[in-house]
Design a protein around this nucleic acid. Structure first.
Lengths: 154, 154
DNA sequence: ATTTTTAAGTTAACATGTTAATAATCTCAG
DNA sequence: CTGAGATTATTAACATGTTAACTTAAAAAT
């Protein structure tokens, strides 16, 4: 046995965890871990869910760019997602009259139904999160994240 | 001109932005927007960079599970990433003697070189972030994110 | 010692992220 | 009115995320 043998490697990768991008990624994963099963049980992905939610909350048709921006999804991804959601009769995409480039997307009944079915469970997950982490802290964290996003958006 | 014409749609999707997962996603995107170009200029993706960084900081070989966990990358993704990094001679993967299931990954010279070339620019980006958002706030945000991650990890 | 169970990685299949190129349409200067 | 330039959406190509199935090897049980 050699005395100068190094000690066991540290369990905590200090520097790596001090990275803001990774901390954001891990936090997001931790939050979504509770939420994803609910969506999976209803047969939709997280991104499909975001698209439906934005459309439902906005209340009327949205063009693709706007929709992509609000749902934080890149245009190429949105194109594919809309293909799936259209086949499932959850949304409808039509060409804009007056501007042939734009595609107007609106939510259909099947989409609204899904929203209404998932919403209660979703609220429950969120409530549990606030119980565990603290509702005020959630609010505070949201503000800090928004501020960071805004200050870096240039 | 019709007077009852609706006003322009609001720029700010209130409800949608109150979602923690989306806020985390947007913040992460805002941070990475400054960082990604640096990595792209050096020919690596964000995830490849994370793998190299973990290996470099750890200082010795890591088995795949451990590496995946520390880099916040899922095992299937890691398998593919290691294939690429191995071809580029940036890492080396060998079977563990004594446990034939484990794969031990270590960083090679080309990998360390990349780290040393990118690190200065990386620090610069991070410094700029702290200038814009505030170094104390970054610290505070990191703590809150870590706490959230821990409290949800069950 | 053989069987059973666990554990570690990989592969498969599909969805999305990411960047660049392309297609289609609109705008506007000339 | 026309053609250059800008805008919107799609397509392409590759990388990663995500879950499940599968393979191999180690550990535990009988």
């Amino acid at each position: 046995m050699i005395l100068s043998e190094q000690v066991n490697p540290p369990e905590i990768p200090q520097d790596t965890q001090k990275s803001l991008p990774i901390a954001l990624l891990r936090a997001r994963e931790a939050v979504m871990a509770g939420f994803r099963p609910v969506l999976a049980r209803h047969g939709v992905t997280e991104q499909q869910w975001r698209v439906l939610r934005v459309l439902s909350e906005f209340g009327e048709a949205l063009d693709a760019s706007n929709l992509a921006s609000r749902a934080s999804i890149l245009p190429p991804s949105l194109t594919r997602i809309l293909k799936v959601l259209s086949e499932r009769q959850m949304v409808k995409a039509t060409k804009d009259q007056g501007d042939g480039r734009r595609v107007l997307v609106s939510i259909l009944d099947a989409g609204e139904e899904l929203i209404h079915k998932v919403a209660p469970e979703s609220r429950e997950i969120y409530a549990d999160l606030e119980r565990r982490y603290g509702a005020e802290k959630v609010e505070s964290l949201l503000e800090m994240l928004d501020e960071l996003t805004i200050k870096l958006a240039r």
